[in-house]
């Protein structure tokens, strides 16, 4: 029992990913929605790292490095948008922000 099978780790990643996805669907607060996206990104990162270990190839970890960078940029811009949106619409509720409908 000193081993963890790769599929267990990978399934764990997919569980976290879909927990994040479910959160994305059910939450109305756009800040929480953004957090869920971070959760999903983390799940993907873990998949990369797992495969890097599994295949003895550091390319996966390099990819994680880039994903973290992109996530940081995305969060910065996303939160900036949320703030700007809140200024004009006085709301962070996704049910009230449905401009695409018209």
């Amino acid at each position: 029992m000193s081993q963890v099978e790769p599929w267990v780790v990978l399934s764990f990643c997919s569980i976290i990913f879909f927990i994040g996805f479910t959160g994305l669907l059910i939450r109305r607060n756009i800040l929480v929605v953004l957090m869920c996206i971070e959760l999903m990104l983390n799940a993907v990162n873990l998949t990369f790292v797992t495969y890097a270990k599994l295949l003895q190839n550091l390319g996966g970890q390099v990819a994680v490095f880039f994903i973290i960078t992109v996530a940081a940029a995305e969060t910065a811009v996303g939160l900036g948008l949320v703030v700007a949106m809140f200024r004009t619409l006085r709301s962070v509720d996704t049910d009230q922000i449905q401009l695409l409908r018209e």
């Binding site: 996805f21 994305l24 669907l25 059910i26 929605v33 996704t94 049910d95 449905q98 401009l99 695409l100 409908r101 018209e102």
Partner: peptide, 14 residues
């Protein structure tokens, strides 16, 4: 179908 709600779109994608 076009509700304007991103989350519905995401659900459809799922």
């Amino acid at each position: 179908i076009q509700t304007g709600s991103i989350q519905v779109y995401a659900f459809v994608i799922l």
